[in-house]
Design a protein around this nucleic acid. Structure first.
Lengths: 200, 200
DNA sequence: CATCAAGGTTAGGGATCCTTACCCAACACG
DNA sequence: CGTGTTGGGTAAGGATCCCTAACCTTGATG
């Protein structure tokens, strides 16, 4: 997972330790002492590699994001048409939440409450990731596949919000996430809306 | 704001102090010492009325929720048809975020990261609030106004997610929220979806 | 008038985050 | 070959911060 750059072993052990601990408890309940103990290093070493306890969280999240950003990109290769791409992106996105609870918890729950997160480099990575969706939307508007009377950035926010909120409760309560099932329903909602259509 | 039950003055001062402090900084950055000083009481008094520092936050949020729950209920009186009710509810919901940033920040940012929040009584109040939307959706399905091929609870999650995510960034970056404008766009999205309709 | 509850304070203790100073092995270099 | 110097890591401690136990005061009540 951690892109094995030439990071010193201590740094890797610390990041790994946080990931392990996040499986069982939320970030606020994890102490630096605990992280150090799990990593098998001393507390002070954390502060050699990370500015903060929070900076550690941000950097771990950043590693996930780089990984999944790349994956989303390749997942979309060879798919034609904005609608099909959006469907695929929704599936991929949900599937990440379904299979990687630690990542889901960090992104959906832990970092949100820190105000400095929104000015961090990690947040920029999130935006870069969601820009994929934005570009598809713009492409779809050009091709008359997607309505162009609502600003694309607005649509992006609305779509992502619905995805994340649907997954949120499932992540919080540890319920299973079925990517296939949720994608189907979400696409119906996102593409056609909740209005009852005229019976054919 | 704080429904003036027969609460002792100290309790009111503490809750007020937190509300004041939340206007400038986020919950995690506020210390109990700071709260006590702002309230003009000693730190220990906080723990006479609240189990935790977090419990204080939950109770303050609960006061907001009771207030806005009531208001949403009366706001919907006299409106006919599920679609019209949903439109109104969306407007009311957004308008609360637009006018009450402290409430918005607590609900959208601060409490989310605490895992015990989701088992708290305050969270039950949130559910009670969102049940309004659920009932309208069910009503709309019965009246053929809203499509019934997606579970109502799913639709509720998706709709609320899109609303909240649209407001979230505006709250985080302190940008203005125009209830009229956002409601218009959100309703278009929620009711009709992003698909380009056949040109008439 | 003794007692008791309610509202509030004093004083302090343990945990947590973070910093400063230090150790030591490996390696470059004159 | 002696000598810096850099990178990885440790030891120890300090400043806060959250929370608790015990105590004080005042007014109501039997």
């Amino acid at each position: 997972m951690a892109d094995a750059r030439a990071w010193p072993p201590g740094r890797i052990k610390i990041a790994d330790a946080l990931r392990v601990l996040l499986e069982k408890k939320d970030f606020g309940a994890i102490t630096t002492a605990e992280i150090a103990k799990t990593a098998g290093v001393t507390e002070a070493l954390i502060y050699k590699y990370f500015k903060d306890k929070r900076d550690l969280l941000y950097q771990v999240l950043a590693e996930y994001l780089e990984h999944y950003h790349l994956r989303a990109h390749t997942d979309l290769k060879g798919i034609k048409g904005a609608s099909n791409k959006i469907r695929k992106l929704i599936w991929t996105h949900i599937n990440v939440y379904a299979t990687d609870r630690v990542f889901a918890k960090i992104l959906l729950l832990d970092v949100r409450s820190f105000s400095d997160y929104y000015t961090s480099g990690t947040y920029k990575l999130v935006k870069k990731y969601t820009d994929i969706l934005l570009e598809i939307i713009q492409e779809g508007m050009k091709d008359q596949e997607i309505r162009d009377d609502i600003p694309p950035v607005f649509l992006r926010q609305a779509i992502l919000g619905s995805i994340e909120n649907v997954c949120l409760t499932r992540v919080v309560f540890g319920r299973k996430i079925s990517a296939d099932d949720l994608t189907e329903k979400l696409c119906e909602f996102v593409f056609k809306g909740i209005e009852q259509r005229a019976v054919k």
